[in-house]
Design a protein around this nucleic acid. Structure first.
Length: 247
DNA sequence: ATTCGTGTTTCAAA
DNA sequence: GTTTGAAACACGAA
């Protein structure tokens, strides 16, 4: 979505049409200012204008699209060309606007760990980033302050691809080499595959599930055919193959 | 008709 | 310091 936004916004003047006032926090960016930069940090998408910075978070159901097929419209990003629509079914997404000078401090305050993507990180790096955590590996992979950007789906998928039991305590994990490889491989695969004018979430009507275990409770494991299990860790659904991952 | 669960983060409490 | 649970929200499915 960040890449799309970069393409769609270009470098010309940008302003905001606010539809749902709850979306916006901070300043009210209704003037038009040229776009300087669009980039991603963890799950935040940042649009820098001449004087301010917009920090977008899509939470679980937010998205930006050019055409508006349906869904709850929360704002429009207005350029000299086609407007960009911020859709958000559950209305948990947010847009924070702050002076550009404050951006660095703002991101700093989030305590985000380093990025596992797009550069490939080593087994030692993964092991080191999660070092000292008491709990299970799957929730640990979602710790934004240790490694930024992995969410509930990625954590399940990476454990599956690496053949690691999501419940295994971090300190007992040996398969860091496989985790490092599969994490990178999954992220590239999913970004590649999900690229396009609109991101489709798994739960949306008419979308097909592109994942190997996530959302596939009761279905056959793509590798061994055993039934995929669902269970809860840290109040989030985990999906895993009991045979491949030894759960 | 309620309750549940939901690609997340943050804050309080254990 | 670390981990867990609830809340913010809307809505289809159970």
């Amino acid at each position: 979505m960040t890449r799309n936004l970069r393409d769609w916004l270009g470098e010309g003047p940008l302003s905001l049409e606010l539809v749902d006032p709850r979306l916006l926090q901070g300043e009210r960016p209704f003037d038009a200012q040229p776009v300087r930069r669009v980039f991603r940090r963890a799950k935040y998408c940042i649009v820098e204008r001449e004087d301010d910075a917009w920090v977008l978070h899509f939470r679980m159901t937010g998205k930006v699209v050019l055409e508006r097929p349906g869904g709850k419209l929360r704002a429009r990003l207005l350029t000299s060309g086609t407007p960009v629509h911020f859709l958000d079914a559950r209305c948990l997404g947010e847009l924070r606007v702050l002076p550009r000078a404050d951006l660095e401090a703002h991101l700093e305050s989030k305590n985000l760990g380093p990025e596992p993507f797009p550069e490939r990180q080593s087994a030692a790096w993964w092991s080191q980033q999660l070092q000292g955590l008491r709990g299970a590996i799957k929730p640990a992979l979602m710790r934004q302050d240790r490694i930024a950007g992995l969410g509930n789906i990625a954590a399940s998928e990476i454990c599956f691809r690496a053949g690691v039991d999501p419940s295994k305590p971090v300190h007992q994990v040996q398969a860091w080499e496989r985790i490092a490889h599969e994490a990178w491989s999954f992220l590239h695969h999913v970004v590649d595959q999900e690229s396009g004018p609109e991101i489709h979430y798994v739960n949306e009507v008419g979308s097909t599930n592109p994942f190997q275990v996530y959302g596939r409770e009761g279905e056959a494991c793509p590798r061994c055919g055993a039934e995929i299990q669902r269970f809860v860790q840290s109040s989030r659904s985990t999906f895993a193959c009991p045979r491949c991952q030894g759960t």
